Simulated scan of single mutants.
Amino acid sequence: MLRGSIVALVTPMLASGEVDWDSLGHLVEYHVASGTSAIVAVGTTGESVTLSEAEHLAVVEKTVALAAGRIPVIAGCGSNNTAHAISLSRQLEHMGVVAGLSVTPYYNKPTQEGLYRHYCAIADASGLPQILYNVPGRTACDLKPETVGRLASHANIIGIKEATGDLTRTPLLRELCGEAFALYSGDDATGCDFMLQGGDGVISVTSNIAAAQMAQMCRAALAQESDKARAINERLMPLHRTLFIEPNPIPVKWACAQLDLIASATLRLPLTELTQPGETAMQQALKSAELIASV
């Protein structure tokens, strides 16, 4: 089981909108050097919804090649079209990724039974281990703990990224799913407490720009060194909050460019560049986390 700080990696793009392969290489090296536990390539933070399928697969393949066995790679493979999610999982199965991250179907608003059948269909059709991803704030669809408990009995469904920020779910998910089922927070602001309650790690946006600090915080939380974990997390809290001041990944891409982790903060429409008030807030958050110098 992967544990610790797992980065929900941005997909760097040139000003033209094409994928920036040089910056992707820089990001992978940064995370290897910083102690990040794993990379999620082309998850929702990686703008999966605006990449073509060919680009999606190419970014995953290149990320695995750049990682060269030094850091595990998880691939985004979710869709609100079950057949498409199955197709993606099958194509990713032989690319060297350790698992797929599959977001709940957005817009469709399926029932809990529909969600159960959706994920079982994917897990039955592909040998790629599946990590469920619940983020109702972006999908209008909530994968309830009881449904997760049903899905946890499937041999090919190995964990969940739980991004509600509702810490009352952590012990319930552990009770329903068992110790072998991986529980990852998808909410940076509550990730520390999530791990202190028995979670296994965080699939993190903040890790894009504060990778070493997130890795240190996660190690402390997993070791139940609560004072140390919370002290690190407190320094990161302005980042956790401000990175969502505008829709993700707008702020984090801007911050990555400011820290020279990528060459450009380019996004694809319908996302647009960070506003001036957003830039001011992000600059202050970067200073608070001591990622840039205070004037």
Rank of each mutant, 00 (worst) to 15 (best):
186 G>I: 04
187 D>H: 13
188 D>E: 08
188 D>N: 07
189 A>Q: 11
189 A>I: 11
190 T>Y: 01
191 G>Q: 02
192 C>V: 01
192 C>F: 00
193 D>H: 06
193 D>E: 14
193 D>Y: 01
194 F>I: 00
195 M>V: 10
196 L>G: 07
197 Q>W: 01
198 G>R: 06
198 G>E: 09
200 D>L: 00
201 G>S: 03
203 I>Q: 05
203 I>L: 14
204 S>I: 10
205 V>I: 13
206 T>Q: 08
207 S>P: 05
207 S>I: 06
207 S>T: 14
207 S>C: 15
208 N>Y: 08
210 A>M: 04
210 A>R: 00
210 A>C: 05
210 A>I: 03
211 A>V: 02
211 A>I: 04
211 A>P: 04
213 Q>K: 10
213 Q>V: 03
214 M>C: 10
215 A>E: 03
216 Q>S: 15
217 M>L: 12
217 M>A: 04
217 M>G: 02
217 M>Y: 01
219 R>L: 10
221 A>C: 02
222 L>F: 05
222 L>Q: 04
223 A>M: 11
224 Q>I: 06
224 Q>V: 08
226 S>Y: 07
227 D>I: 09
227 D>F: 09
227 D>M: 07
227 D>R: 07
230 R>G: 06
231 A>T: 09
233 N>Y: 04
233 N>M: 03
233 N>G: 15
234 E>S: 14
235 R>N: 10
235 R>T: 07
236 L>S: 05
236 L>I: 06
237 M>N: 04
238 P>V: 14
239 L>G: 09
240 H>L: 10
241 R>F: 14
241 R>E: 14
242 T>G: 07
243 L>C: 08
246 E>H: 13
246 E>S: 11
246 E>I: 11
247 P>L: 12
247 P>H: 13
248 N>A: 13
250 I>G: 03
250 I>M: 05
251 P>W: 11
252 V>T: 07
253 K>A: 08
254 W>Y: 15
255 A>C: 15
255 A>M: 09
255 A>W: 02
256 C>G: 13
257 A>G: 11
258 Q>C: 13
258 Q>W: 02
258 Q>V: 11
260 D>E: 15
260 D>A: 15
261 L>Y: 13
262 I>D: 06
262 I>K: 05
263 A>M: 12
263 A>S: 13
264 S>M: 10
264 S>P: 07
264 S>R: 08
265 A>M: 06
265 A>P: 12
265 A>Y: 00
265 A>K: 04
267 L>Y: 01
267 L>R: 00
267 L>W: 00
